[in-house]
Amino acid sequence: MAVIDESLPAIGSAYRYDLRGKRVFLAGHRGMVGSAIARRLQDEHCEILTSPRSELDLRDSSGVAAFFKRERPEVVVLAAAKVGGILANASYPADFLYDNLMIAANVTKSSADHGVERALFLGSSCIYPKFADQPIVEAALLTGSLEPTNEWYAIAKIAGIKLGQAYRRQFGCDFVSAMPTNLYGPGDNYDLNTSHVIPALIRKTHEAKMSGAKSLVIWGSGKPRREFLHAEDCAGALVHILKFYSEDEHINVGSGEDISIADLARVICKVVGFDGEIAHDLSKPDGTPQKLMDGSKLKALGWRPQISFEQGLESTYRNYLASGEAA
């Protein structure tokens, strides 16, 4: 079983982990975030190990254990998860809870059992209480009730964080967790039944433009505020964390800025070129009033986002048009 090298100084001084030449298992490599991580890891001169879902079901403990025994990864990045927006969470609560619990449990245990040197678990900003003080510090975890619209996913992610901490404390495994904010970018999911807010709004706005609609209808009041980070920036932050962070507590990954959903819709309308009105479906839920994470710990490690919000939305819209999903 891999242990933390106590000769390495802790974060805050000069912790370093060199990825050069390492065998890195990237779980979830075909997703938006995972594919961005794969691109970023290419700069680290490491060997990237992947396996398609058809060949490796991360919910299957025996299959995961066999993969680790055969491939012997030295580093693991767990970017695989069952994800979706408010509608998907409400429609499939058992799937969101069970699938994500099993993925985290199987990958974490096999990482420990097969001597993985470093493991990085990806969580989500939804782990924090609905009414947490803003900006949200890492210590806010488990200090209040969760947002009911995504609690199933959040509970599974919290369990994943705690499982990594437990293996770290009991066995000395060098496992860490990162909590990205709301992500967007090329390769996102544009299915209106399962997508998050940015890809959903991009699709709805494009379809409104193409149909000549007079208005765009968005869920809720538009008042809730959300923080967003481009997937490529997130990938850069996660590789930075792999190299420079080793602490028991998880670490936030965000842009440091938030925007109201109504203003987000306006920016997307500008990017797409839709000049109709924005209407609100007040029968739909708003969700958490505000989610802005405190990024002080990551900032102290020397990382900053590189992609501006409007530039990121423009590239994402171009990707949507090129994806074949646009009407």
Rank of each mutant, 00 (worst) to 15 (best):
V176S: 09
P9T: 01
G21K: 08
D191W: 03
A154D: 06
I158R: 13
P73L: 05
K284Y: 00
R168Y: 06
P9C: 00
A14M: 14
G31Q: 01
A81W: 06
G85I: 15
A166G: 10
A105G: 05
N182I: 12
D191R: 04
I155R: 11
P305W: 13
S283A: 10
L313C: 15
E138A: 01
C126D: 02
G164F: 08
A119D: 01
A66P: 10
A14T: 15
D18I: 06
H250N: 04
P73V: 09
H240Y: 07
E247T: 09
R72M: 04
G254F: 06
S315N: 05
T50Q: 07
N100W: 03
R20G: 08
L78T: 10
Y153V: 15
I198A: 05
A300D: 09
T205H: 03
A327D: 07
V77S: 06
N106M: 05
C234E: 08
P305H: 14
V271C: 11
F228K: 09
V24R: 06
V77A: 09
N182D: 10
F25L: 01
L192G: 03
F96M: 14
A279D: 11
S124I: 09
K130R: 11
M32D: 12
R225T: 13
Y190V: 13
L229H: 14
K214R: 15
D133G: 03
Y153A: 15
A231I: 14
L78A: 10
P73G: 04
I307M: 08
F68A: 02
